[in-house]
């Protein structure tokens, strides 16, 4: 699509994001509800949501706060969950690095999974011409607004929900919904099995350090299986090398 102005590109970015909102709203609602339900004030929840702007990291932090985890463990866990943003940043950099800081910094703060996924193909194809950052801003700003507003709605709903509804169970359920599509290969399946198992076995470790250890064990398992399978695939390739065309 050819844009005649930045405004047009921005609004097309907003329209592109809209189909993603049905997945965002329940997640935001549950985040707001669980925060209030575990005794956080609406002001603190709003501050947390603005400062984090990362749903799964915020949910993980809420679960760890509920277990009275050590602050450093919470910080470490959140940063590990958010490490993927480094990848997005690297992938977006060729399209955004030339902009002035008044663009770069707010756009970086609003970088999310959804805005990245919906923009990167259009940005790399070059079809957006000089309006690429307007399109990205459209997806990023509308994602940011959907998230903040749905968490706030959850905060107001949460105040009226009794504790007997066991709504704390919503946290692992959301993680489960995110976990299942993350298992795409035997290596990621191995990472999940070992991560989960070690976390269960290490439940009595102080300050929830078991979570950090379990995550590292899972990641190493994934890398190990990938390495082993890669070596096996190379061997198979060597065996059939004569039949293959390069």
């Amino acid at each position: 699509m050819q844009y005649k102005s930045g405004r047009e590109a921005f609004w097309d970015g907003v329209r592109t994001l809209m189909p993603a909102t049905p997945g965002v709203i329940p997640f935001g609602l549950v985040t707001g509800i669980t925060a209030v339900e575990q005794g956080m004030s609406p002001g603190t929840t709003l501050g947390m949501t603005l400062l984090f702007y990362a749903g799964s990291a915020q949910m993980a932090a809420l679960q760890l706060l509920r277990n009275d985890a050590f602050a450093l463990v919470i910080l470490l866990t959140v940063l590990v969950i958010n490490l993927r943003f480094v990848m997005y940043s690297a992938s977006l950099a060729p399209h955004l690095h030339h902009l002035p800081r008044r663009w770069k910094w707010p756009l970086s703060y609003m970088l999310s999974d959804q805005a990245y996924v919906l923009s990167i193909l259009k940005l790399s194809s070059g079809e957006l011409k000089q309006f690429g950052h307007y399109f990205f801003a459209g997806t990023a700003v509308s994602m940011w607004l959907s998230w903040q507003l749905s968490v706030m709605a959850g905060v107001f709903l949460g105040a009226g929900i009794p504790g007997s509804w066991s709504l704390d169970f919503a946290i692992p359920l959301v993680f489960l919904a995110l976990l299942v599509p993350a298992i795409r290969s035997s290596a990621s399946l191995g990472a999940a099995c070992v991560g989960g198992l070690v976390a269960v076995l290490a439940i009595d470790m102080p300050y929830n350090l078991g979570l950090v250890m379990a995550s590292l064990c899972g990641i190493l398992t994934g890398l190990g299986i990938e390495h082993y399978r890669g070596a096996a695939a190379d061997k198979a390739k060597d065996a059939t090398a004569g039949e293959e065309t390069p």
Binding site: L178, L179, V200, I203, L211
Partner: peptide, 13 residues
Amino acid sequence: YVPASVLAALVLP
């Protein structure tokens, strides 16, 4: 492998 590993470590316990 971060998502699979961290999410499973959060869910199971």
